[in-house]
Design a protein around this nucleic acid. Structure first.
Lengths: 101, 101
DNA sequence: AGCTCACTTGAACATCTGTTTAAATGAGAA
DNA sequence: TTCTCATTTAAACAGATGTTCAAGTGAGCT
């Protein structure tokens, strides 16, 4: 693990990133997107939430570059932004699966 | 990414785990511990916090099995609980370092 | 026993967070 | 243009969260 130029800013961003994943609604959304891109309505059905609530969560995920968007006609398709997001998810799952016997 | 037996419980634990890392004080503590075990007082100095605040944070990290303790005389030494914690940290750092040019 | 040191705990406080509801946007069809 | 559909946005609320301060624990020394 190497040193960094602006530790305070990096730790803040790092904490914000984990915080974005630190909500069971959002982590379910990210999990759903780890299988492929989805539009807001489909995410809402998959995680049993209102489109409005999903949209709010997607905004916080977008703000931290955890997801990205693509427009097709009237529909917005969301997907995970980079490989590290999947890595965080699998590493997290590996950790918690050791806790549940 | 495989399926799970009790999705709701697993997602909750997963979210709690990320939430525990989703605080700049705690992520600094975890970062400090990624270099080796430390006692409470030394952590407090490293992250410029009161021992009390550090102790509170260590409890939430302990509750989620992110850190573990070892006693030596009057001193408690904390360390990261398993390899996945380091993995989460490095994966998170890799992600945010791409965001800061 | 009494004393000190390293740490933990509890209560209080202001601040932040997720969800709901209702209204608004904006792209495309008619 | 007007209408519809997919999504976003704003305001509001209850519930959660981090930090501080003061008090409490309990191990080891004298």
């Amino acid at each position: 693990m190497k040193a960094k130029r602006n530790p305070a800013r990096l730790f803040n961003l790092l904490a914000e990133t984990f915080k974005a994943l630190g909500d069971s609604s959002r982590v379910q959304i990210v999990w759903a997107l780890s299988h492929g891109e989805l539009c807001v309505g489909d995410i809402a059905k998959l995680v049993s939430m209102s489109p409005s609530a999903v949209s709010h969560h997607l905004r916080t995920l977008r703000n931290l570059n955890l997801v990205s968007v693509r427009r097709e006609h009237r529909t917005l398709f969301y997907s995970l932004d980079d490989i590290h997001i999947n890595g965080l998810l699998t590493e997290g799952i590996d950790h918690v699966e050791e806790l549940i016997p």
